[in-house]
Design a protein around this nucleic acid. Structure first.
Length: 316
DNA sequence: ATTAGGG
DNA sequence: CCCTAAT
């Protein structure tokens, strides 16, 4: 999954993802029924206002950053995260919200074949998803409509919508107008991307590009850390960071080279924490399973850690 | 601004 | 990794 900063086209739909919206696709190729997942950083009150008095689809762009009206000839579902003050919502500051509406093309067919670079790791879910898409395309495709149907902004707020249990979100949403509620296929929604959560939780953060590093420590990084500690000892994390973990220090040190710029940022606290964890993993609790995760540290490095740990025990 | 520790 | 008391 990658952050999408421009706009992509699905029929006539343009969706913004930057900086407020985040978008991810459910399929590398737009199916007849185009589903979006949109993360919205708009205040809850704004969304609520929209939901209470839905006017016409021209409001949706304002709310979700869609520049022009989506004109998929099938339902378009937009799922958002809405902001809920912590006083109201115990823990989560963001919760699921969803709205869907139907817009029909004026033309007969929508040449929606834009390829969307889904970075989602392939798995059974994806195939399942595609299967559902095909089903939807074959059985529920409505006839093309001359005139744009009155947009139907229906919305549903999900009280306890955890990310993983929201697959029935579509079925949950009320259908507009009258008539029997049409059964809708389930859809897999992905959990909120870390990027977006970070953006939300620290919108007041210093640097806009201050991305968080959830990446695991690479063995090379650990090597760097160990080398640093062997020289500086334990406790001088800031010095260690500036000397070994500063990308732009053109010193001849073993600092990151230009090709390593993409590395996650390690702060002094990170270095400290990592060392503590290393000691815990390889010294304090040697019996712990170092196989599970990314313990691709070679014995040489591990031995070095053990020696340093004796020399500089972290929790003293 | 930094660090040590607990969460 | 985050948060924070303590320095």
């Amino acid at each position: 999954m990658e952050r999408w900063t421009g706009s992509f086209t699905a029929g006539d739909a343009h969706v913004f993802s930057d900086p407020i919206l985040y978008w991810c696709s459910t399929s590398p190729v737009l199916p007849p029924e185009t589903a979006f997942e949109v993360y919205s950083a708009y205040e809850n009150s704004e969304i609520q206002q929209y939901l209470e008095e839905p006017q016409d689809e021209s409001h949706l762009p304002d709310l979700l950053g869609i520049v022009s009206s989506p004109t998929s000839d099938h339902d378009m579902t937009i799922q958002t995260y809405e902001h809920v003050p912590l006083e109201i919502e115990k823990e989560r500051e963001w919760r699921w919200g969803a709205m869907s509406y139907t817009a029909l093309l004026e033309q007969d067919e929508a040449p929606a074949t834009t390829a969307l670079g889904s970075e989602r790791g392939g798995n059974e879910e994806e195939d399942e998803e595609k299967e559902e898409m095909r089903e939807a395309a074959g059985s529920t495709r409505p006839m093309p409509c001359r005139r744009r149907r009155t947009p139907v902004p229906t919305a549903a707020l999900r009280e306890e919508g955890s990310c993983s249990s929201s697959s029935d979100l579509l079925a949950y949403m009320p259908k507009s107008g009258s008539g029997p509620r049409q059964p809708r296929q389930k859809r897999h929604w992905w959990p909120m991307p870390d990027h977006f959560r970070d953006f939300c939780s620290s919108s007041k953060s210093k640097k806009p590009e201050h991305r968080k590093n959830n990446d695991e420590w690479e063995p090379e990084e650990v090597k760097l850390l160990v080398d640093g500690i062997s020289n500086l000892g334990v406790g001088q994390w800031t010095k260690l960071k500036s000397k070994w973990f500063s990308p732009q220090k053109k010193k001849k040190n073993k600092c990151f080279s230009a090709s390593d710029q993409g590395r996650p940022v390690r702060t002094a606290v990170h270095l400290k924490d990592k060392w503590r964890n290393l000691v815990k993993a390889y010294v304090s609790k040697p019996t712990s399973k170092k196989k599970g995760k990314n313990a691709h540290l070679d014995k040489d490095l591990i031995n070095k850690i053990k020696l340093l740990a004796v020399e500089h025990p972290y929790p003293k």
